[in-house]
Design a protein around this nucleic acid. Structure first.
Lengths: 208, 208
DNA sequence: GCAGGAATCGAACGAGCGTTTAATTTCCCG
DNA sequence: CGGGAAATTAAACGCTCGTTCGATTCCTGC
């Protein structure tokens, strides 16, 4: 088996299956068959089944956190429309790998299933959200966000608008005439930006 | 075993476990033990394991669709602030049973795992969303919603704001100082209403 | 009070799981 | 080219799963 490292092929097969049906429900033999490899290779490279699961979720976590770190450190954050950039990069992080949204959803759902999964779900969700909250607080302090709104709920709402659409798209997408792809991502970004801007941003004029 | 019907106790135990860790990952013996009943009772009342799963998810689906039907037929919909009422009842539907949010999340994630689960996930998500879209179209036609926004994205955003917070609350709740309960629900409703009203509603005055 | 069907149980079965092991192949280096 | 370590495999093991089955208990109507 020379065309690619066995370890990498196992990770890829396991990731695809975990994204399609959840890691818990797919067997070692199924993963190994998809990677054209013996099931014993899982023990050889990852110790045991849980080691393989930890590896694929850790990789997913690192990809997300790496992109969210770019989100935080990007120079666009200092600009006036930082909120728009936040949404754009947040969505871009979700679409960087086609299987990431369902993987994140699985991790959210698996929270509590095992100590390892709980810890990973926490890392996967808490890190980006806490960073976002800190950024929102600063924006609010500078008067660019409506002062009366709790930043925690701002962060929850932003996350909801950026993540949840990916989770329900496979179910309602064909009925709505929407499907994965750059079109969907761009529409999501622009609509989320629109909602958030008109809902969150401090305005000099109108309304209480 | 007289204090409650065995069938009902099995349904309850399976629902709690499915909400806590997903139906796929909990065994029949575990469910039966929690219901203080022999595993053979599952076969007796539900035929097989999948029959039990179908029963609990069907019941969840019926509870949701029943409450969303109330949402559609409620007299409040004819009022000026129908959007606020929609959010309130949508969230109320999610909180009617404490295990419903995770059950819905699991169903979303399980879409594609099996023909039965795909069909149920579709029923669970499509029905309420299509009804919501039809209602939003009517609202938009009557000039109460900004005319330039795609109603499909309105529905996606409303669903996101009303459902996703329940999914991440177990993970980030303690760090944010938020926890399940009537307080959380009320805050969620009021914030979602605020965001949607200022983001979606047509205004006579300001901005392009 | 008893007969008979419904309800319930504990035990056993076969299948599939993750894992281990011994054997084989592959590869690299002296 | 040959030897030893690394890589890979097929087969087997023990375990747990969902399911089945015969026996037992619990109702209920006569």
């Amino acid at each position: 088996m020379d065309e690619a490292r066995v370890r990498e092929r196992l990770l890829e097969a396991a990731t695809e299956l975990a994204a399609a049906q959840g890691f818990e429900t797919c067997g070692l033999r199924e993963i190994a068959a998809r990677a054209h490899v013996s099931p014993a290779m899982v023990a050889y490279y990852f110790g045991d089944r849980e080691g393989l699961g930890e590896a694929i979720y850790r990789r997913a976590f690192e990809r997300v956190s790496e992109r969210v770190r770019a989100l935080i450190e990007a120079p666009e954050f200092a600009r006036r429309d930082g909120l728009e950039e936040l949404v754009r990069i947040y969505v871009a992080a979700m679409t960087a790998d086609p299987w990431l949204p369902k993987l994140v959803a699985g991790e959210i759902l698996a929270h509590g299933a095992s100590p390892f999964r709980s810890r990973l779900a926490r890392d996967l969700v808490r890190g980006p959200m806490m960073a976002m909250i800190r950024w929102l607080e600063e924006e609010q302090r500078q008067g660019r966000l409506r002062p009366e709104i709790d930043v925690r709920w701002m962060a929850i709402s932003i996350s909801s608008l950026c993540v949840f659409p990916f989770m329900i798209l496979p179910i309602v997408g064909d009925e709505l005439g929407l499907s994965f792809g750059s079109d969907f991502t761009e529409e999501l970004v622009s609509h989320a930006q629109d909602f958030l801007a008109h809902g969150l941003r401090a305005r000099s004029e109108d309304l209480t």
